[in-house]
């Protein structure tokens, strides 16, 4: 099976879907001739032409708005926000229109748009290029938020997002783009949205997380295995709506749960995960639910030392996992 990087999996999924369905098109800043600032749409302009790979003005509200309109008319747009941090001007379009149109029109209209956006820190991106913004959208029924961790999941989930009949926010960790590589089959496959995935089986502690933090947890688990600590790792993959069943199953497996996110701690996705566990499986718990997350500071600092302090990393994860195992 060919080994591809995370971003190559994005490109492959887009290309395959555009080939499969004439209604699929891409729009965003610099996605055309330039092939995207991260090169996610590299080669698509040459392959599918300017009519299906649209360079847009620097106006996120318009990118979302045009995409939503096209989707309501039966197209399958894939809109790119150059950085997730820039999605804010489009929030009104996404939350008030895309998320609600099916409900508002009593099923007469739908909005099968996919909005891709690179998020996350650890790339010296500072304030406007490092944020995690999933929590902003994570209480909007009508939306789905997908945040894959591996190239295999990227391809399968992006294809599923494009084929989904409702709006999907597809957040890609920008540090994972070239850092994370993995086997990606060339054939046409999709993975179910809304389903978490066990990335490692273990019996001592459960780690529930998503995105790049999955890899931090896997690395820490490798080390801890030598100390006899056997970690169970659940990758949420879709952070809204959450896969309650998988969360409860994973938490019940060991009764000791560590939740990870690189987002600011308060009000983050993992708070909701903790609430689900507390609601559904209190009597399986053997330790207080633990959260490891970024500090409640407005944004990722630029200074490397401060950025390191802010970011979750394998060492911090390992320490938290060991403490929980020893409890």
């Amino acid at each position: 099976m060919p080994v591809k990087s995370y971003i190559q999996a994005v490109t492959q999924a887009l290309s395959e879907e555009m080939e499969r369905d004439q209604k699929v098109f891409v729009l965003g800043e610099d996605v055309g001739k330039r092939g995207g600032v991260f090169r996610a749409t590299d080669g698509l302009y040459e392959k599918f032409g300017e009519a299906r790979v649209l360079d847009t003005p620097l106006a996120e509200s318009a990118i979302a708005g045009v995409g939503i309109g096209a989707a309501m008319y039966g197209m399958r747009p894939v809109a790119e926000m150059q950085f997730a941090d820039f999605i804010m001007p489009a929030v009104n379009q996404i939350i008030s229109e895309a998320a609600k149109i099916r409900y508002r029109s009593n099923n007469d209209w739908d909005c099968p748009i996919t909005i891709r956006a690179p998020y996350g820190g650890g790339v010296h991106g500072a304030l406007y290029h490092s944020q995690s913004i999933e929590a902003v959208f994570a209480n909007q029924p009508g939306l789905k938020i997908v945040m894959p961790s591996t190239p295999y999941d990227v391809k399968g989930l992006l294809k599923a997002a494009i084929r989904d009949d409702d709006p999907v926010l597809f957040f890609e960790h920008k540090r994972a783009y070239r850092l994370i590589k993995g086997e990606v089959p060339d054939d046409d496959y999709t993975l179910p949205l809304g389903k978490a995935d066990v990335k490692r089986n273990g019996s001592d502690i459960t780690v529930i997380t998503y995105g790049l933090c999955v890899h931090f947890a896997l690395q820490a688990a490798e080390k801890l295995e030598q100390e006899g600590i056997d970690a169970h790792i659940l990758d949420l993959r879709t952070v809204y709506p959450l896969d309650r069943e998988a969360i409860v199953e994973a938490a019940s497996k060991t009764g000791k749960v560590l939740l990870l996110t690189e987002d600011n701690k308060e009000g983050s996705i993992i708070g909701e995960v903790a609430a689900i566990i507390a609601e559904e499986c209190l009597f399986e718990l053997d330790a207080p639910i633990q959260r490891l997350a970024g500090p409640d500071v407005p944004a990722m600092p630029y200074a490397p030392t401060m950025e390191k302090h802010f970011m979750v990393n394998p060492d911090k994860v390992e320490k938290a996992m060991r403490e929980l195992a020893e409890f």
């Binding site: 009597f283 399986e284 718990l285 020893e326």
Partner: peptide, 28 residues
């Protein structure tokens, strides 16, 4: 909670179980 439940369901006297957790805590 897990320890309490298991002890009750299986009729185990907790004061007679050796704890391996931190501070002598009885783990699940």
């Amino acid at each position: 909670p897990a320890v309490m439940r298991l002890a009750q369901e299986n009729n185990i006297q907790l004061d007679q179980v050796e704890g391996s957790g931190k501070g002598g805590r009885i783990t699940r």
